[in-house]
Design a protein around this nucleic acid. Sequence first.
RNA 1: GCGGCCGUAGCUCAGUUGGUUAGAGCGCUAGAUUGUGAUUCUAGAUGUCGCCGGUUCAAAUCCGGUCGGCCGCCCCA
Length: 413
Amino acid sequence: MSKMQPVRGTHDLLPDEYRRFAHVIDTAREVARLYGYREMATPIFEFTELFARGIGETTDVVSKEMYTFQDRGGESLTLRPEYTAGICRAFVSNGELAQQLPLKLFAAGPMFRYERPQKGRQRQFHQIDLEVLGAPEPGADIEVISVAADILDRLGILGRCVLKLNSLGDPESRTAYRKVLVDYYSAHTARLSEDSRDRLQRNPLRILDSKDEGDKAINADAPSFSDHLNQASRDFFKQVQDGLAAAGVPFEIDPALVRGLDYYTHTAFEFVTTHIGAQGTVLGGGRYDGLIAELGGPPTAGIGWAGGIERLVMLANEPAPLPRPVAIAPLGPAAEAKALGIARTLRRAGIAVEQDYRGNMKRRMQRANKLNARAAIILGDDELAKGVAQVKDLDSGAQHEVALDKLAEALKS
RNA sequence: GCGGCCGUAGCUCAGUUGGUUAGAGCGCUAGAUUGUGAUUCUAGAUGUCGCCGGUUCAAAUCCGGUCGGCCGCCCCA
């Protein structure tokens, strides 16, 4: 670490990049607001047990990717690897929230996963997150997906994404299907890839979207989930599909879409793109009706999604340019003092004003240019005596005299 | 965790089969101007060649290790 590097898998968000980052969050926040979602935040670390119980002990996220440490009091804490568990915990911790159902929430913040870094996959990364608690109806699924589609649309990403949709069924369907699948693959275990043999133990549904050619051949004849959904699950999935069609959100059914976190039931979905390499999932989520009860809360349905901000930034259009400032260029101590007051008056009128801390005329004009100022206010002793300033339009080069008390008016817009 | 590619000024990159003071463009700084920027001209500075060690008379160049980035797998957002 001789040359001061950031920790592996972390990076600094410098001002130019941060603007694009904030643009994604601001856009998401605004769209969420239109749908009636309220923003909140939870701590970035929680008791380790929360994630172990909520996400599932055998998932990759919990078993090998968490930043877990003991604090000075001996508690085992973990930097959150995702947002949903923390939000559900907050729901259980704060009884008042149970009186506000359905609870529609938006959140954004950093997440931590110990993974091999790559573009679009950092150890500290950031997500926007949307959740609805206390709504078992398919209408919530439809709404939550619509919000996501609208956010992606505003960011200029929707056209380069495909929405993939699947149903994992209710717990009854899921366990039944899981058993059928395990039986099927167990009969072919000799021909399965090593990865998939492992998956057979931990999460057999995952074998369905294996990229291994041998596995794909076996998958071709694998029993399909849709044939094993019970009537209730089937009806639910149908309603979600019909609702999305009615809302005008295009989607594709992907029977191989399985999410890696244990808590999902019924609807699972992902917006994926082929434009940013292997880390193609830009936003994904699903329904988790059993999670809150699992955490010891009152049985409460839940559905939501998370979107990777870094991945969204790579695809999003540029944020609108900032309003250009005006630069004030005083010459001499008297003018410099006077400029302080003028600058403040203009700022209070809503005009962005840049005032250099030092420098002669040339330097101040150069700075004004670098700051992309639209105009310069030139204030020397001559102007001071007359109660005026020279206002120079930096695009046209035109310059004219303006009375000091008319400056705000002259520089409006 | 597995396999592979890469690491030279602030940025994008050159750098012959190891050979003397390591280069270009952009950017940066200063001057051409006494109260006027961006354009133009001139001059200047860029740097532990990621880091540590090894081979060699000699390493940016070859070898090993390490740190970091990237690609694929795994997994996920």
